[in-house]
């Protein structure tokens, strides 16, 4: 879009918005390396607080739990979401109902899905723990994987599928040797996105993890910690968590030149 709008005004707007977006997190990152741990006095660069994190067993076990949840739910969601995307795209008719069901996990407020799952699991008398968090995370993860893969499928040349069949391949072989390899960047991009979402997800985990201390995930741990104020350890932990998300997302974006979902 070419507009006659004043370039200087545009530059001011962009600078202000990016400052608003990035100053808070930059301050956080900077403080995490502050020797004194105080927000007001810089006493020197140090990785001391990162070291302390490693000795906090609450944090390390929560991190391990989060890793388990994220990895397992991502794998499941990637498989289900990819198949779903392929299925939806090769279907000729587009059903409104189907679209709604697929879209719903991305727009239902977290709190609603969270209490719905909590009610569901307790009604069935399921003992809650990491496994119920995994089951729940797959719900929204598969929707996001599906949307990333579908975006790529829109530009997919379906005639290569027919070409593969024409050259003698069965449907399974075509899927394995042609569709999946061509789609792989998008599938991995979707998986990375799902991984980040799962690592960061708090509300649903909070409601579906049950009461046990051994099923606390990292966001739950962070929530518990930040309710009681600012500590240098949280700064370090927050920086780490953010770094993981940003790394995974940048990678996802690279792989999937189409951009992030919603774009």
């Amino acid at each position: 879009m070419a507009t006659p709008a004043a370039p200087r005004l545009m530059l001011m707007i962009l600078s202000a918005v990016f400052a608003f977006l990035y100053i808070p997190i930059s301050v956080l990152v900077a403080l995490s390396f502050n020797e004194s741990g105080l927000p007001t006095a810089w006493t020197g660069f140090s990785t001391r607080w990162y070291g302390e994190l490693m000795h906090n067993s609450d944090i390390t076990s929560a991190a391990l739990n989060t890793l388990i949840v994220a990895v397992v739910s991502t794998l499941l969601a990637t498989l289900l979401g990819t198949l779903l995307a392929i299925g939806v795209e090769i279907r000729r008719r587009k059903g409104r109902f189907l679209e709604t069901i697929i879209f719903a996990p991305m727009i239902i407020p977290d709190i609603v899905l969270a209490i719905a799952l909590l009610s569901f699991f307790s009604l069935l008398d399921v003992t809650m723990g990491l496994h119920t968090v995994i089951l729940s995370h797959v719900v929204f993860n598969l929707a996001f994987v599906c949307s990333v893969v579908r975006a790529r499928l829109k530009t997919f040349d379906w005639s290569i599928v027919e070409a593969s069949t024409d050259l003698g391949a069965s449907t399974a072989t075509t899927l394995r040797r042609v569709v999946v390899p061509v789609m792989l960047p998008a599938i991995v991009a979707g998986a990375l996105l799902a991984f980040t979402l799962s690592v960061d997800e708090f509300i649903i985990a909070f409601f579906t993890a049950g009461a046990g201390r051994d099923s606390i995930t990292l966001p739950m741990q962070i929530f518990a910690m930040i309710r009681f104020g600012v500590t240098p350890e949280i700064n370090a932990l927050a920086t780490l968590v953010m770094a993981v998300s940003i790394l995974a997302l940048t990678l996802s974006q690279r792989l999937n030149r189409g951009g992030l979902p919603g774009q």
């Binding site: 005639s159 027919e162 061509v182």
Partner: peptide, 30 residues
Amino acid sequence: VPPNLRQINLMFQSYALFPHMTVFQNIAYG
């Protein structure tokens, strides 16, 4: 008879070459 079992081959209008395979691999596929 399904297309993969017919001894008939089609050259597609878009050519439908497999983008992730080399020329050699494309030809070897069948």
